[in-house]
Amino acid sequence: MSLTIYLSGEIHTDWRQRIIEGCRDFDFSFSSAVTNHEASDAAGDVLGDEAKSFWRDHKSAKVNAIRTKNLIEKCDVAIIRFGDQYKQWNAAFDAGYCAALGKPYITLHSEDIIHPLKEVDAAALAWATSPEQVVEVLKYVASDN
């Protein structure tokens, strides 16, 4: 089975690469939001300078949304990663968008943030605590057995 997988969320660890590497023997394609923090923050800068950071962020969020909306709409399944160091509000938004579209998603996060993510996890079809668990779920989904 061929799957298109969208990888959303935390950008400060190697979780994406671990999933991609673990799935190398399967017919999966992967996509993601821009993971370069500075580039993402500057996505709207080509549209002109802003005196207030709110408007700079607003424009960049909209430019980034062109990419993320299209990739989420085209994916078969999304992996939504919440890391320990930062709050990934964008990942929560992506999860909500997946839920609204009826796109299956898997959350990936540690046990210590179960409570704040209870609604996000309730709509997920699986919750994993490691990229390796995500790989095993994806392999199972794609298997012929």
Rank of each mutant, 00 (worst) to 15 (best):
E10K: 01
E73P: 03
K139S: 00
K87A: 14
Q88R: 11
S2G: 04
D25N: 12
E73T: 04
F82R: 04
R56A: 13
R16Y: 13
K69R: 14
V34H: 12
R81M: 01
D144Q: 02
Y105A: 01
I11T: 13
Y105E: 05
I5C: 02
H58G: 00
L71Q: 08
A42R: 12
V141D: 00
A39I: 06
N90Q: 06
W127P: 00
F26A: 00
H37S: 05
S40D: 14
K139E: 02
D27N: 08
R16D: 01
D84A: 14
K87V: 13
G44L: 08
L3S: 07
S2R: 03
K62V: 07
A43G: 01
R56G: 05
Y140N: 10
P116E: 07
G96S: 15
E119F: 15
H12Q: 12
D94Q: 15
M1D: 04
D25V: 12
D144F: 00
V77R: 02
S40Y: 07
D49S: 08
A43M: 15
Y105F: 15
G83M: 13
Y105D: 03
R18V: 15
I11D: 04
H12N: 11
V120D: 04
H58N: 06
W127C: 09
E119I: 15
T107P: 05
F26Q: 05
V141W: 04
Y97S: 08
A92M: 02
R81S: 06
N70K: 08
V46R: 02
S130Q: 12
G48T: 10
R16E: 15
S8D: 11
V120C: 07
S29C: 00
E132S: 04
Y6L: 03
I5K: 01
I114M: 07
G44F: 07
L101Y: 13
D41F: 03
W89I: 12
G44A: 05
G102H: 02
D84S: 14
H37C: 06
A65W: 01
Y140G: 05
T129C: 08
F30G: 00
W89R: 04
H37V: 12
Y97G: 04
S2A: 11
I66W: 02
N145M: 00
V141K: 05
